[in-house]
């Protein structure tokens, strides 16, 4: 017994050491930003690695951020764009996935292939024409422009994942529904949608982070003050206040905190979604 446990504990210690080292590397910058955002300017420079103490604690940075930048508006914009895009991706994606998975019709495979093209081709390539489209339709500087772009960007992978999942659903329930005279729409909304909820959660968490964090499209399609997202808002704010270290650190922290809260809530689903092999 003893002979076998010794080497195992030693490899365990080595494993913990490597993982711990990398965890410190991963968290260190976030930690430094957060602690320094609560310190006075002097303390930030005197001892950057110290925790805020009684004499070094200060909220001056947050005061500047709240007074100068409209972070609540930015947050609200980001929230609207992310939530509405996710709803549209899930609803329209599930509908299309159901059509592809459930019905045999001419062009089914071709349609599936057409919709799958967008998984590998980044939508950014079409930016010049997207901007012209939004200018022509008067959608520039509206949240709708961003919502449309993110919905189009998210649909291909959503349809792919959801249709794979729907092909695995047992036919009995649907057949029973049809015999009872339910319409195809009722079958979809009442019988199928509740069954694919786990796959919908996977799609939602996959799309959430890139939409929330995107800088490219807000910068190009919606740079106006009243439609700025949190990502663009903090980018512009930090650019203007580069020399005000308190304000910059506080703005960074205010951008980090909501994402961290969301991550703590959803990290289980996220990790399960990634590791469930939905993207294989």
């Amino acid at each position: 017994m003893n002979r076998t446990t010794r080497p195992i504990t030693r490899t365990h210690i080595a494993a913990h050491l490597i993982l711990l080292t990398y965890t410190v590397i991963a968290l260190f910058p976030v930690f430094v930003i957060l602690i320094n955002s609560f310190k006075t300017r002097k303390a930030i420079f005197r001892d950057p690695l110290a925790l805020p103490g009684a004499d070094s604690f200060s909220l001056i940075g947050y005061h500047t951020v709240l007074k100068q930048g409209d972070f609540f508006l930015y947050f609200q914009n980001s929230m609207i764009v992310t939530v509405v895009s996710l709803i549209l991706i899930l609803l329209f994606g599930a509908m299309a996935a159901f059509a592809l998975a459930e019905y045999r019709f001419r062009g089914n495979a071709l349609m599936g292939l057409y919709l799958a093209l967008g998984i590998m081709i980044p939508i950014r390539i079409g930016t010049v024409a997207i901007l012209e489209l939004m200018v022509a339709t008067g959608l520039v500087n509206t949240l709708s422009a961003l919502i449309l772009v993110y919905t189009a960007q998210g649909l291909p992978l959503a349809i792919f994942i959801l249709s794979e999942f729907m092909k695995g659903i047992n036919d009995d329930l649907k057949s029973a529904g049809r015999i009872d005279g339910l319409s195809e729409y009722t079958i979809f909304f009442r019988l199928v949608l509740p069954l694919v909820r786990p796959a919908m959660a996977t799609v939602a968490v996959f799309n959430m982070i890139p939409i929330w964090n995107d800088l490219w499209f807000p910068l190009i399609l919606a740079p106006a003050e009243e439609v700025k997202t949190l990502t663009l808002g903090s980018q512009v704010f930090i650019g203007q206040f580069v020399t005000d270290w308190n304000a910059v650190l506080s703005a960074l922290s205010m951008a980090i905190i909501p994402v961290m809260i969301l991550y703590i809530i959803f990290s289980r689903q996220l990790i399960r979604g990634i590791t469930s092999g939905a993207v294989k």
């Binding site: 299309a96 967008g118 939508i123 189009a152």
Partner: peptide, 18 residues
């Protein structure tokens, strides 16, 4: 009806601009 919204948004906002 099931395919239209996804195909419409995907085509007008992604494929045509591309």
């Amino acid at each position: 009806v099931f395919l239209a919204p996804a195909v419409l948004i995907y085509t007008t906002v992604m494929i045509i601009p591309l």
